[in-house]
Amino acid sequence: MRGDRIRGVLWGLAGVLAAMALWEGYKALAPADGIVIGELTVLPRTTDIAMPHIWDMVARLFDPVTRAAGADVLWWAVLQAAAFSLGIAALGWLIGVVSGMVLALLMQRWLTAESAVLPWVVLSQTVPLIAIAPLVKRWGTAIHIGSFEWENWMSVAVIASYLAFFPVAVSALRGLKSPHAADVDLFRAYAAGWWTGIVRLRLPSAVPYLLPALRLAAANAVVGTIVAEVSIGLGGGVGRMIIEFAATASGDPAKTWAPIFGAMLIGLVSAGLVSLIGLGLGRFRRGEAPA
């Protein structure tokens, strides 16, 4: 077991090193204008503007964000932005997981609900995020309850949840339906109610289906947050930072990559946090169902 762990870490490191070697190797070997077939550029340019050296990108992290007096050092600014985005993504994930579970339970309980709702669930994911972002913002600002004011970060969380609920709803439904007919008969023989069946039979059976769905939902929530920050125009997060820094790309190419590292960090942290959930649920994964 320990050996497997260490080997896993080593393979992970090897992967990162391979990616870095590929980057620098391509930059060193390919022509500056990239590889062009006819008039199509099939592989990118390798100039310092298009592909800065890795060490330049890393070094840039330790310089101030701007030349203005009192500016934060870049890595700290990125970290703050990443934490901000991670918070919103986490909220979006939570909303998405809860609504996905509720939908799945409804669909399991009533067959009509399944035939009425499932097509819409699938259809919902075909609508581009860019299209719904302004709508969510407009609907949100129309909400006035007492002193409650809808704020832009809430719109971003809603959009993140919109991407996150889908894998949860679909996988949870599959998981809730996964018990064998004999098990369902057994619970009927015990005169167990619907909720007892859910808690003692269907939810435990759904765990192997749910864990990968929760990870997918986390990845979706992160992507949704970053894209929605851009479309809603919410400052403070990684999404907006990517756009802002891109504007300075010609003068300060290495800086553009800093918020992208931030986005990767959010992805890694959220995936790690979600896999922690799986640790406590090992006993429900005995005789793992094919996912």
């Binding site: 064998h180 004999a182 057994l186 007892t196 003692r200 765990v207 006993r283 005995r286």
Partner: peptide, 25 residues
């Protein structure tokens, strides 16, 4: 009641499987 497939819940121990009907009731 007992079926051809034992139909034990894999996440429960032997004891917890035997106690299942008692727990439900």
């Amino acid at each position: 009641i007992a079926f051809q497939q034992a139909g034990l819940l894999p996440w429960r121990t032997v004891r917890a499987n035997i106690e299942l009907p008692l727990e439900i009731h």
